[in-house]
């Protein structure tokens, strides 16, 4: 997809810049997913059987990654989200390139999204 890491990051940064910022009232401690270095806020809304995610981060590359996750997962049913195989994270080489300490935030975010899906599934 890209020749080099710079190109890849340029794309991710662009996604991060395009992501609509989360409203300040949602930036609550309860919505925080704490990584080692940056913070992610994640909120979910369940409507007509579909989960909608909104998220933000204080670091732009993480915002870009978050934006990708939202593009893929938001607007799907709890069952679809719970079963989603997020091969693209591996495919774009992110798990490997983002050393464990850095990717933790991303992985915790995926975990949190799947957790919401399970919770809504149980509620139904």
């Amino acid at each position: 997809m890209f020749d080099d890491w710079e190109g890849k990051y340029e794309y991710i940064i662009d996604l991060g810049k395009q992501l609509a910022p989360l409203a300040e009232e949602h930036k609550l401690d309860g919505n925080k997913i704490k990584g080692c270095q940056s913070t992610v806020w994640l909120v979910s809304r369940y409507e007509n059987g579909l989960i909608h995610f909104e998220a933000d981060s204080d670091a732009i590359i993480v915002r870009g990654l978050v934006s990708m996750l939202i593009k893929v997962l938001s607007g799907h049913s709890p069952a679809e989200i719970a079963d989603a195989d997020l091969y693209f994270i591996d495919r774009i080489g992110m798990t490997k390139h983002l050393a464990q300490t850095r990717s933790n935030g991303l992985l915790s975010m995926v975990k949190q999204m799947k957790f919401y899906a399970l919770a809504y599934q149980l509620k139904d």
Binding site: C36, Q37, A59, I60, I61, L98, R102
Partner: peptide, 22 residues
């Protein structure tokens, strides 16, 4: 206006190892 983590990740792609965070 720039988060240290973003700087650290980009510098790494240029082969430069710095520390970011607390």
């Amino acid at each position: 206006g720039i988060h240290p983590q973003d700087l650290g990740i980009l510098l790494d792609t240029y082969g430069i190892a710095v520390r970011t965070g607390h």
